[in-house]
Nucleic acid binder design. Structure first.
Lengths: 156, 156
DNA sequence: AAATTATTTAGAATTGGTCTTGATAAGCAT
DNA sequence: ATGCTTATCAAGACCAATTCTAAATAATTT
């Protein structure tokens, strides 16, 4: 319900319809695969999940659906280094933490009332359409397990 | 001269030697191509620059050199979405701004005394080895040219 | 129902990057 | 200096992720 939102849709279907598109079986299956397990799968992982219930779906369709869902603002994609794209159903502004130990990806929320401009010295007059932040290191579990009290791993 | 630096090397050659490697002609050429014009070229762009003075160098060698220089901490690589890797000789902690208008990439410095943890709600006990931040939008020049007074572009 | 448009599918193609192999070159110990 | 050992380079083959193409299918409109 943001005042400047160009699209007041609230359900996934409304988002899709708002763009003149249809909520097809495939798109719903892909969306559900992402919402059911709120993690950060790659396209191939989504493909495998969806394939379990819809064996005829093709990888190209999964890519298409993920792109459509992203364009409609229902999911976000996340990148880290040269790794394959991952997809994330969390629409809140957040960063991602990639654990070198267990390979997991976790969401890192923005502290309340904070904005990126608080720490980054951006020129006044830029207009920002996208902001992606990724951390890499050891998650709490792996940090304790691996390093004992060590504070930092060698930067890669 | 950071106290906790494991490697007190200061010249590029010392960095390289500190790893038991040699500063070869090719590595120096690649490094110089990056330092001469302090921008954010892709591997192919570096390749073209170096080729001007060393026509026999191969793209694979440029990739190898860039990787070596990165491992030695002489340059950093930067990623944005699915675009090809770019390389950056600025060793200060900084973010990158990718302009949708002119295609340029600019460095965004960290405000003094600020840390990412100031805005991101990271668990206490994580250990961070890498942190990459990218913004996308219109740079000051393109923002004025394109939008007039408009404050934001549509998110992609 | 016919025409139009959107969507899916399978596989080919593209891209950025990495790996392999043999040739060169540098450093080291006689 | 001479031969041994290791590092580096070059060229092209290779690979994985993604995108494109073209034909088939499905939904929507006329």
């Amino acid at each position: 319900m943001k005042a400047n939102s160009p699209n007041p849709a609230s359900t996934p279907d409304e988002h899709i319809h708002g763009r003149g598109l249809r909520m097809t079986e495939q798109r719903r299956a892909v969306y559900d695969a992402l919402m059911g397990k709120r993690d950060h799968p790659t396209a191939v992982e989504v493909f495998m999940r969806v394939k379990a219930s819809r064996p005829t779906i093709s990888l190209a369709t999964v890519y298409n659906c993920l792109e459509t869902l992203t364009e409609c603002g229902l999911v976000k994609y996340v990148h880290h280094d040269r790794e394959p794209s991952r997809y994330c159903p969390n629409l809140q502004e957040h960063a991602h933490f990639f654990c070198e130990g267990c390979g997991g990806v976790m969401d890192v929320p923005l502290r309340s009332k904070r904005r990126p401009q608080d720490i980054w010295d951006l020129p006044e007059s830029v207009s920002i359409s996208r902001h992606e932040v990724s951390f890499r290191g050891l998650c709490p579990k792996c940090a304790t397990k691996a390093g004992g009290k060590s504070k930092a791993t060698r930067p890669i």
